[in-house]
Simulated scan of single mutants.
Amino acid sequence: MSGAQGRRCRAWRVTRADGAVLGFTDHDRDLEWEGCRFRAGTGLSAGQIELSTGLAVDNAVAAGALSDAAVTEGDIARGRFDGAGVELWELDWAAPEGRRLLFRGTFGEVTRAGGAFEVELRGLAEALNVPGGRVFQRTCPAVLGDRSCGVDLSAPGMSVEARVGAVAEGGRVLRFAEAPALPPRRLERGTLRVLDGAAEGVVAAIKEDRQDGDWREVALWFAPGAAPVAGDRVRLEVGCDKRIGTCAGAFGNAVNFRGFPDLPGEDWLVRRPVPA
């Protein structure tokens, strides 16, 4: 093989949701263009890439080695690569301006084991698989604190910061010696955000909020990949059960309620008049 054909290589550009841009190449030297350095030997290699016309979803699988300089196990556990944008280029390393884009999409599921990781790549048509439109239901479909809800979670009584006193069940249960200044069970269906420590940036959904003796316990639905430890500072945000009574009573936000509380149930179809 000679000439430009013998100088072919591949390069990856990964853009995370936090704005960090990482470059990788299978060439034996670093490459650079458009202000991005594509590092050699750091690791991404692709299997077969399936490309199609029409609206079918293009997909691929990439694998690489975990390293402190590129993709770390901690960053994966904290979800920093979730939904990251990815571009795969084929190019002549001696003349990168003539590069050809082979694939553009996002990171899907990322798995890691034995110092390596494997990531599912999803094409741009993947977004068309997301259900759209509005659902007519009794409960509110809005997420507490989002634009359609309108509740300000930074307002007094909506969230509280606290230091983790102890951790149990592999990080699924957090205990606080100084009980958060919120009524019991107020945090159920709420959100936990880790503000510092090794697990900084981790966000998890709260399942239970209970008092256990001198401890206030918060149980998560799942143990996060990077769990906070005793001494870490977290932010605890209140939850909502999506009912009109809670929206009006606990938040004074009935005007923004997005559900249909008077919608008849399925049993309405088989009801019949009775003498009573």
Results as ranks from 00 to 15, higher is better:
residue 159 S to D: 03
residue 201 G to R: 01
residue 185 R to G: 05
residue 179 A to M: 12
residue 191 T to A: 02
residue 209 D to V: 05
residue 223 A to I: 03
residue 143 V to C: 10
residue 149 C to E: 07
residue 145 G to Y: 06
residue 220 L to Y: 04
residue 183 P to K: 14
residue 167 V to G: 04
residue 168 A to Y: 15
residue 210 R to M: 09
residue 177 A to Q: 15
residue 223 A to P: 04
residue 195 L to R: 06
residue 153 L to N: 04
residue 184 P to E: 02
residue 146 D to H: 10
residue 221 W to S: 07
residue 221 W to N: 08
residue 227 A to M: 15
residue 149 C to M: 06
residue 176 F to I: 00
residue 172 R to N: 04
residue 146 D to V: 00
residue 170 G to A: 09
residue 182 L to E: 06
residue 168 A to P: 13
residue 147 R to W: 00
residue 213 G to L: 00
residue 188 E to W: 07
residue 204 A to H: 00
residue 227 A to L: 12
residue 190 G to P: 13
residue 180 P to R: 09
residue 205 A to C: 04
residue 151 V to L: 05
residue 196 D to I: 03
residue 165 G to E: 03
residue 163 R to N: 13
residue 189 R to Q: 10
residue 154 S to N: 14
residue 184 P to R: 03
residue 168 A to K: 15
residue 186 R to S: 05
residue 166 A to W: 11
residue 167 V to N: 12
residue 195 L to K: 03
residue 178 E to P: 01
residue 195 L to A: 02
residue 177 A to T: 10
residue 144 L to T: 01
residue 166 A to N: 01
residue 167 V to R: 10
residue 215 W to F: 08
residue 189 R to K: 13
residue 164 V to Q: 03
residue 177 A to D: 14
residue 154 S to V: 13
residue 168 A to H: 12
residue 213 G to W: 14
residue 220 L to W: 12
residue 165 G to W: 01
residue 174 L to M: 15
residue 224 P to T: 01
residue 164 V to F: 09
residue 215 W to G: 03
residue 175 R to L: 04
residue 180 P to M: 10
residue 167 V to C: 13
residue 204 A to L: 06
residue 192 L to P: 00
residue 214 D to E: 08
residue 188 E to P: 10
residue 165 G to S: 11
residue 157 G to M: 03
residue 222 F to M: 15
residue 212 D to L: 11
residue 167 V to K: 10
residue 216 R to W: 02
residue 202 V to D: 04
residue 210 R to T: 12
residue 148 S to K: 15
residue 170 G to R: 08
residue 166 A to D: 11
residue 222 F to I: 06
residue 219 A to W: 12
residue 187 L to P: 14
residue 191 T to C: 01
residue 193 R to L: 13
residue 158 M to Q: 14
residue 202 V to F: 09
residue 198 A to S: 08
residue 144 L to E: 06
residue 186 R to T: 01
residue 220 L to D: 08
residue 208 E to T: 01
residue 207 K to T: 01
residue 224 P to F: 00
residue 205 A to I: 03
residue 217 E to Q: 11
residue 154 S to D: 14
residue 174 L to W: 13
residue 191 T to Y: 05
residue 169 E to W: 00
residue 160 V to K: 07
residue 196 D to L: 11
residue 152 D to H: 10
residue 194 V to G: 06
residue 167 V to D: 11
residue 143 V to M: 02
residue 216 R to H: 13
residue 149 C to P: 07
residue 175 R to K: 14
residue 202 V to N: 03
residue 226 A to V: 00
residue 186 R to P: 05
residue 190 G to W: 13
residue 150 G to Y: 07
residue 224 P to G: 10
residue 165 G to N: 12
residue 165 G to D: 12
residue 206 I to N: 07
residue 161 E to G: 12
residue 153 L to R: 07
residue 145 G to C: 03
residue 171 G to V: 00
residue 165 G to F: 07
residue 179 A to R: 07
residue 220 L to F: 13
residue 201 G to D: 04
residue 167 V to T: 10
residue 220 L to H: 05
residue 169 E to C: 04
residue 176 F to C: 06
residue 157 G to K: 09
residue 212 D to A: 10
residue 174 L to D: 11
residue 226 A to L: 14
residue 153 L to E: 03
residue 209 D to Y: 09
residue 185 R to D: 11
residue 196 D to G: 04
residue 173 V to K: 15
residue 222 F to E: 15
residue 164 V to H: 06
residue 181 A to N: 08
residue 159 S to G: 05
residue 211 Q to R: 13
residue 214 D to Q: 02
